[in-house]
Simulated scan of single mutants.
Amino acid sequence: MTEHVTTSPAPAPAPGSRGAPARPAPGTPGIDLPDPRGRTGLDRHGRDLTGNERVRVLDVEVLACDWSVLRRTTFDYRHSDGHWSREQRETYDRGDGATILLYDPHRRTVLLTRQFRLPAYVNGHPDGMLLEAAAGLLDGDDPREAIRREAAEETGRAVHDVEHVFDAFMSPGSVTERLSFFAAPYDASAPGADTAGVAAEGEDIAVVELPFTEALGLVRTGAIADAKTIMLLQWAALDGPFAPPAVSPR
């Protein structure tokens, strides 16, 4: 939902000014004191954006910072008809991530995970146990390095030659995360695991191998309801390892 603070034309800020932000109280975690992850200056993020002349960022407030950061940004926006309005948006910054579809082109199978997802559970999923492609946050690593790490942690499989498929913003109305999508074959003859995950992080992950056609069927029935997994499975069917052979023009 869009929150309109005012719809009157907004005056242009003085040269070199971004408006008069409200000053946080001294000794605020994430601002001038380290937050639980040792970060400071979190209210500076997004203040110096200049790529869109229709947007003037006036203020960035940190509403919460623990593992992720919740910010409220106040900005002036020039609409297509020329009038300005003052807007506020809340953004949830959890960092960028990566996901991967592991597949066996010879046996025509894919390797997925099943784990408990509290947000899905509280929003109507029957048990919160989602079938997903392996994924995780970058945590400062290169996306390729991060997804190799996550594939090993979540499926017990080591992957090397990963293919970058595309990048996507998963929920651009409120979440800043950009997800890098990858795919890679896995060796079904290599030792695997039925369960995986990092116990210290509370992960309890079941490794699930499915025929590719069955996985697509679970998308149709809603049994696979995770967006990144649906996107990767559809890519695999249209352009990836399970795409139909190209038909030569007559």
Rank of each mutant, 00 (worst) to 15 (best):
T74K: 06
L70S: 14
D96G: 03
D141Q: 15
R178L: 08
Q115C: 03
G124Y: 13
L179T: 15
D139Q: 08
R148A: 14
G156P: 06
R117N: 15
G128L: 06
D141V: 05
L130K: 12
S68V: 07
T99I: 01
V110Q: 00
A168C: 07
A64Q: 13
G156E: 06
T91R: 09
A135Y: 11
G128A: 10
R71C: 06
T176E: 08
R89Q: 11
V159L: 13
F116A: 02
Y186V: 08
T74D: 09
S189Q: 09
F116D: 01
Y77F: 11
R108C: 03
V159E: 02
T155E: 10
H125K: 10
Y103P: 01
L131T: 11
A146E: 11
R86I: 02
D81V: 04
L111Q: 07
V198A: 14
A64M: 07
P143H: 05
G192I: 07
R148Y: 05
R144E: 06
Y121Q: 09
E87Y: 08
G97T: 04
R157V: 15
T176Y: 01
R86L: 06
F166Q: 15
V162G: 02
D194R: 15
E132F: 02
R117E: 13
D81A: 03
T73P: 07
A64R: 14
R94K: 05
R149K: 09
S180I: 01
G140P: 10
G156L: 09
Y103E: 02
I100W: 04
L101N: 07
I147N: 07
L102E: 03
V165R: 03
W67S: 15
P105S: 06
V198C: 09
T91N: 04
H106D: 14
H164M: 05
M170V: 13
L130Y: 10
L112S: 00
R71Y: 05
S171H: 04
R107M: 05
P126I: 01
R149F: 13
T155L: 12
P119R: 10
V110D: 00
R144G: 02
W84D: 07
A146N: 13
A168V: 06
H160F: 13
S174P: 00
H160G: 07
E150P: 00
L137P: 02
L111N: 02
W67T: 11
S171G: 11
E154A: 01
D81L: 08
D81N: 11
A168L: 09
A158R: 10
V162M: 09
G140T: 15
Y121C: 10
A200R: 00
M170F: 05
H164T: 12
G156D: 04
P126K: 09
V69R: 02
A193R: 15
L137V: 07
G197M: 14
Y92E: 04
C65D: 05
L130M: 12
S180T: 10
Y121W: 11
G173A: 13
P126D: 12
F166I: 12
G97F: 00
F166P: 03
L112M: 05
D161E: 09
S180A: 13
D81R: 07
G140F: 15
D76V: 12
A190M: 08
R178A: 01
Y103W: 12
